[in-house]
């Protein structure tokens, strides 16, 4: 059952909650207990900006079972405006439109459905801007 772990991740999945190191400004997404850059243990809670750019990408054509009906599935590493990085699907576009450097906006979508009987898991995905 995935309900407990899904519920735990809601702050990150739903509103991009992250930790910002009060010493060196490193942004930890998800939040961490110790800064990997400076060793500080003090973080300020922030929410990442839902916009950024594509660092690199791929289009998954052979997917794990959960995503097998959604291929071709563009997925990218995205750098948010604060400089934090995350992996997210890029949706509502022709896969050919996805390119390194393009600007994206993060939106709220269903990510996994756990079959017809399980819980629906929501979170961030990206759409191309403009």
């Amino acid at each position: 059952m995935i309900t407990p772990r899904y519920t735990r991740e809601i702050p990150q999945r739903y509103h991009l909650e992250a930790g910002k190191c009060t010493e060196c400004n490193f942004i930890a997404f998800p939040p961490r207990l110790i800064c990997p850059e400076c060793g500080s243990r003090e973080f300020e809670q922030i929410s990442l900006s839902p916009s950024g750019k594509i660092v690199t990408y791929t289009v998954v054509c052979v997917a794990a079972e959960e995503f097998s009906t959604e291929t071709p599935l563009p997925i990218a590493i995205i750098e948010t405006d604060e400089g934090a990085r995350l992996t997210a699907q890029v949706v509502d576009c022709d896969p050919e439109e996805v390119e390194i450097g393009k600007r994206v906006r993060l939106i709220f979508r269903c990510i996994q459905k756990e079959g017809l009987a399980g819980i629906r898991q929501y979170g961030y995905k990206a759409v191309l801007e403009g």
Partner: peptide, 30 residues
């Protein structure tokens, strides 16, 4: 695909549908 994907970050990579070929494809495209 699913078993190998456990070598990636489950909550922040595999959760979003990325596979191992996909991760190396990130590297390849870059």
């Amino acid at each position: 695909i699913d078993a190998l994907a456990t070598a990636a970050d489950q909550e922040y990579e595999a959760f979003h549908g990325i596979t191992f070929p996909g991760l190396y494809a990130f590297i390849a495209n870059a």
